[in-house]
Design a protein around this nucleic acid. Structure first.
Lengths: 147, 147
DNA sequence: GGACAAGTGGGGAATTGTGGGGAATTCTCC
DNA sequence: GGAGAATTCCCCACAATTCCCCACTTGTCC
């Protein structure tokens, strides 16, 4: 299982390609085969899950009861945005047009490692997200991990 | 498991490298493989966790439910600043640019051993932190450890 | 004072990030 | 079904950054 951490601000080239930082690439397990499932994240960003992690998530979803409207809505939303993308020889992935629009990404992208996934943000959108944080880091840490 | 103690004031060279004191290096366990995870600490300093200690911390975080907004905020904040750095043959680590800016570190750094982690501070920031202490050392000891 | 360990700074090799061209494939229209 | 346009994929070269090695200075101990 991968463990992504760190941040990098990279360019998105004219073809919609963006590099995944070398350390995050190194964190991929062989089971991922250099491939991510890219999908809509929460808070207006893009999530990238390594292939093996995504398969685990799909197995979780497969257990949901499809006779529930709410479940169907959730599954539909999660999967309609999902697309499989492979790293090229330079360690880049192509961003899909709908996801670039959703996340407001144009020429620059902020890439953040978040444990089992990689997040891709528009830098300005991320700055706004930080400003809107209801709690500072120390308070958050105490709330979540303070017991 | 490591047990870091002591303090040292060292230079940060033009490439952002700073030495870890020899006694702290000696305190590392073989499981750490001469590698730290460097991340944002509380109160504007940098934390360095030996690799084995960091893995224990990640295992705690991996158990959090990612469908909770607050948990996502916390994990994002904690991991975006984290980066794995290895000691070079001279016992130095490269400070990452975002963390140097966060901690206000330029040409000098104060390195403090704090049990399972090493802290790196800007010397002036640390002096200000000490001045702002609401309680002196003896009072603090009684509050925290006095029972 | 001398030997050794630890801290300091710099050069150049290796790796990573960036942008572009053209071949191959897919999509659209007639 | 075929032609042409659009998109995707593969390869390449160059710029920028990181890593590895080395030498020198300073500090400590005998």
């Amino acid at each position: 299982m991968a463990s992504f951490k760190g941040q990098a601000a990279y360019s998105v080239d004219g073809k919609g390609r963006v590099a995944i930082p070398a350390k995050m690439r190194a964190a991929l397990s062989p089971e991922a085969k250099g491939t991510f499932t890219m999908t809509r994240g929460f808070e207006r960003c893009i999530f990238l899950y390594p292939l093996d992690e995504w398969e685990r998530m799909e197995a979780d979803i497969a257990g949901l009861n499809m006779y529930s409207r709410q479940n169907r809505d959730f599954v539909r939303s999660m999967l309609m945005w999902a697309d499989e993308v492979a790293l090229d020889a330079q360690g880049r992935v192509p961003l899909t047009r709908p996801l670039m629009e959703y996340a407001g990404i144009r020429e620059r992208a902020l890439i953040i490692g978040a444990l089992e996934r990689v997040e891709i943000w528009d830098p300005d959108a991320f700055a706004r997200y930080l400003e809107e944080q209801p709690a500072d880091y120390e308070t958050l840490a105490e709330r979540v991990m303070g017991g």
